[in-house]
Design a protein around this nucleic acid. Structure first.
Length: 667
DNA sequence: CTAGGGTTAG
């Protein structure tokens, strides 16, 4: 198999290389990051050391000596000019640390905040963390310091670092400050870490945060961006109402967007009306979210009415509103009306980019009007409409759906020569086209491209590749790809596993097939019952009897009698002798009557290996209790070889069995 | 010198 992979010119490195590369390229540690990490380490130590000292300084009942020392400090810091000079020194110094050592003591928290802000405005990204760490170490910072730091460091910080900064805040008042909490949560949402932000929010509340509407609108915005965000959004709304916070227009905007992106037009309508009942006037964003909610089901009557309402409320439909309306018509299958609206958009100058064309093309293609879709695409290109590649993506996917793989491939090539912008979806789309067209060379180039751009393959990428490799009969490659996929945390679909399992069985890659079976079995989904029997046959063909036993033991109820019988025979014949009795008991335990042939086979195995006589005796002693008797020919076989086991013992056991069975058989 | 949001295409 590996040979054929090489034979058709697959650069072996690529497919097996892309995975480790992707997993290791997670966070490129910049100079900034690593220095911030180092500083955070030292800060932790010194913070602990300082805590006691600070607590003392803040204590009202200070010893008189300390109090006078503070008075002296206050007197000194009152000198505005001195502080001003110190600020200048710190701001202009080329060696920030030594400047802070010299002048820092004179500066108040608000002076330091001003410097922080100054550095922020100048985008001095090395100085900001340096100053901030100094402020932390010298306990000269407040809420504003943290918020400024988060604001100016923005995307330079990673999620873990941000959570760490927050967790290391000792001062309860700062930690529970709603502005700071909102700022942190907003940072996490920007980083698309919705789950982390929700968990942190929970912890913040437990620690004493009193959230406000801003907190909720921040989190609601996050729920729009994740799948299955709708239930979480509802929880947030409930939580907010429970706290008797009133919903403002921002909250309404957020929840309407959530409804729209989760195809909940009735719920969207509800919030829209509730908003008006609350005395708030919907703006274009509110209208456009509701319109978008209507577009999912193509409800153009409601959409038209909404546009009329909007106009009578004095709002003018903008480009987004009209583009969304176009989407409603498209989804509603009103292609003539869509066409007209597109013309109107053009005349308004709202069709300068590809979006409305994309909506229409996609709708036509999905309605099976591939030719019309292509006409729109050509028209769009002729008009020189700006495109980022969405139009290509739509058409390539559409061609693939219609099994027009040559056309798909040509368009993918066209995209590559025209654009130099790739993202995951585009790469998957092209990969799909090349795979379906059987363009191995292009498939590999696309993977290489993905690798170079450090774009991690997604569930779809893996599926496309596994299907393709299977189609090309490169089953082991498909298998390795599936293992890779699984190790990346993706659970492959059952049908794909099932067919790969069969293919691997066919090429006698029995243990690989079993591995695929286990991927399915230990995945979360419930699997098709027939697969147990399917893998059983494969394992038996590969003489993997121990694995076969595991399958039978766990899934006997889903395996047919003939298959169980086939397993039993195979195991008795050549399974591990130490497990023969266990297998017998298991078979019996799951309702499979053991016939004399099986017993005879087991006995023959023990005769071949007399050192296992204890197991034979055990079996013979077990049988009568379950209603089994040794048939005459097996009995003769045992007697003939009884010298191997001890004549006396065998005679006893057999006669004992005879008595028991007689007792059972007599009425 | 301190916090939030919402609209369109693959």
């Amino acid at each position: 198999m590996e040979m054929s992979v090489l034979g058709i010119g697959l650069p072996q490195g690529i497919v097996f290389r892309y995975s480790p590369l992707f997993s290791s390229s997670s966070s490129s540690s910049s100079v900034l990051n690593s220095s911030a990490t180092r500083n955070a380490g030292s800060q932790r130590v010194s913070t602990t050391a300082l805590t006691g000292e600070i607590a003392q300084t803040n204590d009202a009942q200070l010893p008189s000596g300390s109090r006078s020392r503070i008075k002296v400090q206050n007197r000194a810091s009152k000198s505005h000019n001195t502080r001003q000079a110190a600020m200048m020194e710190v701001q202009q110094s080329s060696d920030l640390d030594s400047a802070l050592t010299r002048a820092g003591e004179m500066l108040k928290v608000r002076d330091l905040n001003a410097i922080l802000h100054h550095f922020g405005k100048l985008n001095r990204l090395q100085d900001i963390p340096q100053l901030f760490v100094w402020m932390q170490e010298n306990r000269k910072l407040d809420v504003t310091s943290y918020i400024s730091y988060i604001k100016f460091m923005g995307n330079k910080l990673d999620t873990a670092k941000m959570v760490e900064i927050y967790n290391n805040i000792q001062d309860e008042a700062i930690k529970n400050n709603v502005y700071l909490c909102n700022s942190i949560l907003s940072f996490l949402i920007r980083k698309r870490k919705f789950d982390i932000s929700i968990k942190l929010f929970q912890k913040m509340k437990e620690d004493g945060l009193i959230p406000d509407v801003v907190t909720y609108s921040t989190l609601l915005a996050g729920s729009t961006k994740v799948k299955d965000g709708y239930p979480k959004a509802l929880e947030l709304i409930q939580d907010l109402q429970h706290r008797r916070l009133h919903m403002d227009d921002v909250i309404y905007g957020a929840i309407l967007a959530v409804c729209a992106s989760n195809s909940k037009w009735e719920e969207a309508e509800f919030y829209f009306n509730q908003m008006k009942d609350d005395g708030l006037s919907p703006n274009v964003y509110h209208y456009s979210s509701l319109l978008n909610a209507y577009s999912v089901c193509g409800n153009y009557q409601k959409a038209d009415k909404l546009i009329r309402d909007m106009k009578s409320a004095g709002l003018v439909p903008n480009k987004v509103i009209l583009t969304t309306l176009l989407k409603v018509y498209v989804r509603g299958g009103l292609f003539d009306k869509s066409r007209e609206l597109l013309t109107e958009l053009e005349s308004l100058g709202y069709a300068e980019d590809e979006m409305p064309y994309c909506s229409l093309m996609d709708g036509l293609a999905k309605a099976g009007q591939m030719h019309e879709a292509k006409l729109i695409f050509d028209e769009m290109r002729k008009k020189g409409v700006k495109s980022d590649g969405f139009a290509h993506s739509i058409m390539i996917s559409a061609f693939c759906r219609s099994k027009l793989f040559e056309e798909a491939k040509l368009l993918a090539n066209d995209f590559e020569t025209t654009y130099n912008k790739y993202d995951l979806v585009m790469l998957n789309t092209m990969l799909c086209a090349y795979c379906r067209a059987g363009e191995m060379e292009s498939v590999m180039q696309t993977l290489k491209k993905m690798d170079g751009l450090a774009i991690s393959p997604s569930y779809n990428t893996f599926h496309i590749l596994i299907r393709y490799f299977s189609k090309e009969k490169m089953y082991l490659l498909a298998y390795r790809t599936m293992k890779d996929m699984h190790s990346k945390g993706h659970q492959p679909a059952e049908e794909l596993c099932s067919s790969l399992m069969s293919d691997l069985g066919m090429i006698k890659a029995h243990s690989e097939a079993f591995s695929v079976y286990n991927i399915l079995k230990y995945g979360k989904r419930t699997m098709c019952k027939a697969l147990h029997e399917k893998i059983l046959h494969i394992l038996l063909a590969g003489q993997l009897l121990k694995d076969a036993y595991v399958v039978v033991k766990d899934n006997a109820a889903f395996i047919s009698r003939p298959a169980i019988k086939k397993f039993a025979t195979a195991f008795m014949k050549s399974g591990n002798i130490n497990m023969i009795n266990d297998v017998m008991k298991t078979l019996h335990g799951c309702g499979h009557k053991i016939d004399k042939d099986l017993f005879q086979m087991a006995v023959s195995r023990y005769i071949d290996q007399p050192e296992k006589k204890a197991l034979l005796l055990q079996l013979l002693q077990w049988m009568p209790g379950q209603g089994y008797v040794v048939d005459s020919s097996t009995r003769n076989l045992i007697l003939k070889n009884s010298h191997l086991f001890g004549r006396q013992l065998i005679a006893e056991v057999l006669s004992n069995q005879h008595i028991k069975s007689k007792a059972q058989n007599s009425p």
